[in-house]
Design a binder for these strands. Structure first.
Length: 304
DNA sequence: GACTCGTGGGC
DNA sequence: TGCCCAAGAGT
């Protein structure tokens, strides 16, 4: 019978064949980021993780430095008005993160004696900390063994192991299982692997224009061995922005951030022409606790 | 699960 | 130039 050459899925590489090259690559190419230095401590790691949610490193760097200089410990931030956190957040985006980081600092001060907890469940219970951030802090700050599944790691696993270009839209149980199975047994090595696989996704195995020529596991990569087939299925949801409530909220909050005191309604009305959407956006900011209404139609960042 | 929630830079 | 993306969390 005639053998027909059909594209066949490459076998998934064993974990050991991935760990050593990726860890060696990380030794040589890891960026020197301030939150990776020993003096950052768990608080520095935690602050960086909040800021890095959906935000590029280059934009986080300056804000991170100012933040840690001003609030070197959770208790220092907890003693401030939440509006100060929102103001210091600047233009990082998603300002509810600032509010949650402040709330987490308050909770750490009240419940944990001012020290960032090392326990995964206690981290997860803090505002603004979800599955990823809890694992990241426990792993990066405390050297624990956790699957740290961020967008970079998910993409690396999707390609190197599963053999597809992109991971699913939302994290699946299968991905969690796979990530756990890939974790080195040794705790310190597992923590190192978490950081290394994330860095590989950030620097080499990027969403677009991946650089397989610099990839330490190119020879093991199931996706590359399969001929790098294009992503199948529905396109991932694009994020529209222009004209949305988010844009209006951003404009409103920018005015309040830059004003050091109550702002009259008229100053807010000036940033968006359409009154219904403008009012809805402002209501949303108030409901979120990002804006505090005062008497006389004035507004300011939250004082408490 | 589907949506919302900012901002800016790279291609 | 527009579109895509960036260390997610909460509802």
């Amino acid at each position: 019978m005639t053998a027909i050459e059909t594209p066949e899925a490459a076998p998934a590489p064993s974990p050991d064949r991935l760990h050593t090259p990726v860890l060696a690559w990380f030794d040589q190419h890891a960026r020197d980021l301030p939150w990776r230095r020993p003096e950052a401590g768990a608080w520095g790691v935690m602050v960086s993780e909040f800021m890095l949610q959906q935000t590029p490193v280059s934009r986080v760097l300056p804000v991170y430095e100012q933040w840690l200089a001003r609030w070197p410990r959770p208790a220092a931030l907890a003693a401030e008005a939440p509006g100060e956190a929102v103001r210091a957040w600047g233009r990082l985006g998603y300002p509810r993160r600032a509010l949650r980081l402040h709330g987490a600092a308050v909770a750490i001060t009240e419940r944990h004696g001012g020290d960032v907890p090392s326990d995964h469940a206690q981290l997860l219970a803090l505002p603004g900390i979800g599955e990823y951030t809890a694992a990241a802090v426990a792993s990066f700050a405390y050297g624990q063994r956790h699957a740290v599944l961020d967008t970079n790691v998910r993409r690396v696993i999707a390609r190197a192991v599963t053999g597809v270009q992109y991971p699913p839209n939302a994290t699946t149980a299968a991905e969690r299982r796979l990530a756990r199975a890939l974790l080195p047994d040794d705790e310190a090595r597992a923590a190192r692997w978490a950081a290394a696989s994330m860095e590989l996704g950030a620097l080499v195995c990027t969403a677009r224009n991946e650089d397989c020529g610099r990839c330490p596991i190119a020879r093991e990569c199931a996706w590359r061995l399969a001929g790098k087939p294009a992503h199948e299925g529905p396109a991932r949801r694009g994020q529209t922005y222009a004209g949305t409530d988010r844009q209006v909220r951003g404009k409103l909050l920018a005015v309040l951030r830059e004003a050091h005191g109550p702002v009259p309604q008229a100053a807010l009305d000036a940033v968006w022409h359409e009154p219904v959407q403008r009012a809805r956006a402002l209501d949303g900011l108030v409901a979120d606790g990002l804006v505090e209404p005062l008497d006389g139609g004035r507004y300011r960042l939250p004082s408490a």
